[in-house]
Nucleic acid binder design. Structure first.
Lengths: 207, 207, 207, 207
DNA sequence: CATGAATGAGCGTTCATTCAT
DNA sequence: GATGAATGAACGCTCATTCAT
């Protein structure tokens, strides 16, 4: 495009404005309750303009989510690559996950809601992102097991799901309640639970 | 119009058939891709009949979900009340949670997807169920802490979220991948992680 | 046709009313300039009602035209079957063709215009009807040649096209000018030209 | 900007390129399925450029057709003026008509289809051309009647319509079937039918 | 002259809901 | 109660046309 300025109403940054508007509007009302006209209005463009940049309403949402995941992944991978210890890697993932979403609530809302829509939408599209993310976590878990810092008797798959599920739930709780959210502290607490476990006496799965 | 709700199982089984049909159809195609006429057809009733029992399409879904949660809760509460040990109580919750959903895939699909539609829907409606469920888990955690079997230094809120999030994620993984699911074994694995933690050396949050 | 159902706004004949309305509206404004809403309004039904009876706007037009052709064909075939002489058969075709269209101007307009739309529409659909009609005429021509009443040295294909083309043009002239039309007299004149030819001296193709 | 095809093709031929592109594109997809942007793309100009030369999409098509008819007429008039015999004049018209369209299939398609779009379009616009053409033919017929080579008892109007209708149908048959077309031979066959008639015994309108 | 991004009215179609039977 | 034909508002999307560059 042309050199876009940030001059308020914006000039040449329609593409990004549409993406942002879509995330906001859909986060507020849901995908199927968000007419294209609402997204256009929020973005400050005409309805038809959206179709100059995207093939369909669907495509707008997919693009927005793809962009988020891409940025998210490359960010995490980069940070992780600089950390040798698997425990610290997992800690970094937790922090980045929570910080990333805490920084942009509409996005978090969207990820906790629309991403889990009807089978078709999720299966065809966002499921791949989920798999990628989970695989990344599994790798870290396996690395920790090789390093001897994570217990070998637990499944890396299950551990990764528990880890992701716990983080995801913390975000959901925030998103659906709206209470203040402190990503750093939350990450710390979640890791406290997941690393050390809930039980006092190492009775379960721990001899 | 409807003059209140149809008390109990009602006369004909149409009421229940509509609920079942709604769960199935919506699980397959999603809420917004499930015309009322499809639900009616699946239930074997006329379109208009649905409005004799429910005041809107929305109401059908809400009622179905309410029924599920109610049954789920009373079931869990009853089972738990017979168990003295908090660890065993949590174990029972995990088992019932996974078994309950494993036994009825369409329901599981619906809970993992449609329940999280738009923030508004969740906030207005299903969030209350979630809160009830989480409170139930928190109570168990606190009981365990009093009993000395769960570590006192972790937040019961965080522990409950981690526990629920982990279970939820296992269901999601099943729902979105379709791979065979063994609730008993899965419950056991999840508890292995959550009770004992991932880490070997009690470094984190554990002295 | 139209002079029939004057009985109030009509009740259960919506199917036919939609077809009639479609023919009228499309004849007046053309297929692409006739919104479904206009057809619905003319038929005295709601927009959505049209989709209870037809799959699409396209389908309405196809159905109308199919009905016309079907009625037209069976009518012509029946009349022809009772006539032994090929010349009289051709005469009957001409008369029925012109009378049939003269009796329902909107239909004639539609056949002279929309039926010849863009390649896809014509090729896929109405072309088959045309072929059937032309084949019927060719058969009559061949029969006349066998009977010795039509010249053997002319191609039945070309003769049939000339015959149809001449009739078609007479209809077009009427449709586009709006001048009064006498099907009987016109048929007679056209046959006068086609049977006897234009030329006085049998110079051309006639020895 | 684009630095495209500035070479050779010349500067100011845009007007003609747009007309040609319109004929091609509309012949392929029909008027209403041919966005202005497609015509512009085919012509190698920007969408807006079309509006520098024409005041609407409609105007492009009208202009193209006007040009065709004008060229066609002046050509026919000139050729005819050099021929004394009315039979040969008619023969020339048939040949030029068929050759002219055979030489440029997109144009033929357009004339057989889009020209007959809606009654309104035809009535408002192309009908005048048709009338001119038919009058030209009628003149030739009358001339032949005066020369004694055409039968006086047939209406020049009807004869002209039959003649034009027959030619038109031959073109339609070619356009809609796509079979190979030999204008010279076809003209000859059509004239064989129209000059000499179909019937053997001069029974009809011929004593 | 030429561009092509932007506009927004208008389209075909769907579907939650109503109501006469 | 039960039906299902009928409604009409609302949607996603297209494209003729304009206008700042």
């Amino acid at each position: 495009m042309d050199g876009g300025d940030v001059s308020g109403a914006g000039r040449g940054d329609k593409y990004q404005r549409i993406l942002d508007a879509a995330v906001e509007v859909i986060a507020e009302h849901g995908y199927f309750n968000s007419p294209v006209s609402s997204i256009a209005a929020r973005a400050g463009v005409a309805d038809g303009t959206i179709y100059l940049y995207f093939k369909s309403k669907d495509h707008v949402l997919r693009t927005a989510i793809d962009a988020v995941f891409s940025g998210f992944f490359s960010n995490i991978r980069e940070e992780i690559s600089r950390i040798p210890d698997a425990r610290e890697q997992l800690r970094a993932v937790a922090r980045l996950h929570l910080e990333g979403l805490a920084a942009h609530r509409p996005l978090a809302v969207l990820l906790q809601t629309e991403l889990r829509q009807s089978a078709k939408f999720v299966a065809d599209f966002s499921h791949q992102h989920m798999k990628d993310y989970l695989n990344l976590i599994r790798e870290v878990v396996r690395r920790g097991q090789q390093q001897g810092v994570f217990r070998k008797e637990i499944s890396d798959r299950v551990a990764a799901h528990c880890f992701f599920g716990a983080l995801d739930e913390m975000v959901s709780a925030w998103v659906f309640t709206g209470r203040p959210f402190e990503p750093e502290a939350t990450a710390s607490q979640v890791l406290g639970v997941l690393f050390g476990g809930i039980a006092t006496i190492p009775k379960d799965g721990r001899e």
